[in-house]
């Protein structure tokens, strides 16, 4: 793997900054001051103030962490469950593959938001339930990608040659299949992270995710809607923050995967 590029470093810094923000903010940042409610952006308050007079910049910065944590948890869980399943299905083939694929199809048939709303509708707003519900929807996606990538490698002649040399199946997977699929998997996992960010934001917007006490960016928008005509900045800034993070991850996802791919293998002489 080569050294990370400047863009990647930037993205990591931004994400880290957002995660750390709530702990870094000065204590007075969240102070309420009803006299200064709903002020438009100015030098003193770059993002303006909200309905309770709080500095909105501080509020938006603090709202990044809940969403990022939930998305990270979802992605991790989805990858830990989905990728091994997909690799297993692709490498084992036959009946195992068939069974796994059928199960995954059921997972695919229910759109992620639908499943999440249904689950949260039964359990009530709960971060754990949210993570589980979303992970249940994204794990099949990662499994499918992992399976396809594994199948592609298993069909290569160097795998056949390794079998002919007497190599054990699990070692073939570990030594030949996984290193060559790592790039695709990294890209897809990064994309799942961006999907999870958006899903969490939508669910919070609908009132089922984070609650007013510890809002994520999506939740901030719920509160901004009734005040659209009066204070549009309440909606513009948190949304923009979310879009920026998601765009950053999307733009780098391909590059991160490419960094792991056998670059030298592409474009070789025939």
């Amino acid at each position: 793997m080569r050294r990370p590029s400047a863009a990647t470093v930037l993205v990591v810094l931004v994400l880290g900054g957002v995660l750390a923000a709530p702990s870094l903010l000065p204590p007075g940042a969240a102070a309420m001051d009803p006299a200064r409610a709903l002020l438009p952006p100015s030098a003193g308050a770059p993002f303006g103030t909200d309905v309770l007079g709080r500095d909105y910049l501080a509020r938006v910065l603090a709202a990044g962490r809940p969403g990022l944590l939930i998305a990270a948890g979802t992605t991790l869980l989805a990858a830990l469950v989905g990728i091994p399943l997909g690799v297993l299905a692709g490498a084992a083939g036959g009946r195992t593959d068939l069974v796994v694929m059928r199960v995954l199809e059921v997972g695919f048939a229910v759109p992620p938001l639908v499943l999440a709303i249904a689950v949260l509708g039964v359990t009530g707003p709960s971060a754990a339930a949210l993570v589980l519900a979303l992970a249940a929807s994204y794990a099949p996606l990662l499994a499918r990608v992992a399976r396809a990538a594994t199948l592609a490698r298993m069909g290569e002649l160097y795998v056949l040659a390794a079998r002919a040399a007497g190599e054990r199946p699990w070692r073939i997977v570990a030594l030949h299949v996984l290193p060559n699929t790592a790039g695709t998997l990294v890209t897809q996992t990064a994309l799942v992270f961006s999907y999870a960010l958006l899903a969490e934001a939508s669910l919070s917007f609908l009132g089922l995710g984070t609650q007013p006490a510890n809002p994520s960016w999506g939740r901030l928008l719920t509160e901004a809607i009734p005040l659209t005509t009066v204070a549009p900045w309440l909606g513009i800034f948190p949304g923009a923050a979310l879009v920026l993070v998601v765009v950053a991850v999307n733009l780098r996802a391909d590059a991160w995967g490419d960094a792991l791919d056998p670059r030298l293998a592409r474009g070789g002489r025939p």
């Binding site: 961006s194 958006l198 934001a201 939508s202 917007f205 949304g239 979310l242 879009v243 765009v247």
Partner: peptide, 8 residues
């Protein structure tokens, strides 16, 4: 466009 949440 892909990064825009529909509510935004």
């Amino acid at each position: 466009a892909l990064s825009l949440p529909p509510f935004y």
